[in-house]
Amino acid sequence: MSDEEKGKHIVERKYVDDSRIIEPEKLEIGGIDVSGHWGTLVLPRTIEDFDNSMLKKVKSMPRGKNIEKCWQCGNCTAICPVAHAHPEFNPRYLIHIVKMGYSAEVEKLKDTVYFCSGCGLCSSVCPKGVDPQGVMIAMSIAFKSKKGYR
């Protein structure tokens, strides 16, 4: 079932992430067909764990080692020319979710890391020497890594 079709009976559908709705094509309870919205479930959005496996992977990359210095000031996003055009690409946020290990959020946003044009402005303004540009490289490799993160 496509994402738009899922949970279309929920009145406030637009506030619910696609990934949180489970609505199988066919659902039966004791011989009674409850497919569609009768059988829809909406998963909670609570963060339940800090998974640091992704962070380890990023840190093992040559230019990703500085990720731990980040204190979330937002200078990188402020100056990033891509972020101004594409709000879904936010280097500060990517660094945070990888650092904390919010796996669902990483899963949702991991492809945005390829928006990075590699201009290096972020690294030039970072007050803590995180080298966000390098971290973005490390992340884009880590996200595709087979041993890393699923």
Partner: peptide
């Protein structure tokens, strides 16, 4: 009343 899917899931 209006969002049974969410009530049920909750």
């Amino acid at each position: 009343l209006t969002e049974r899917e969410i009530a049920r899931s909750f």
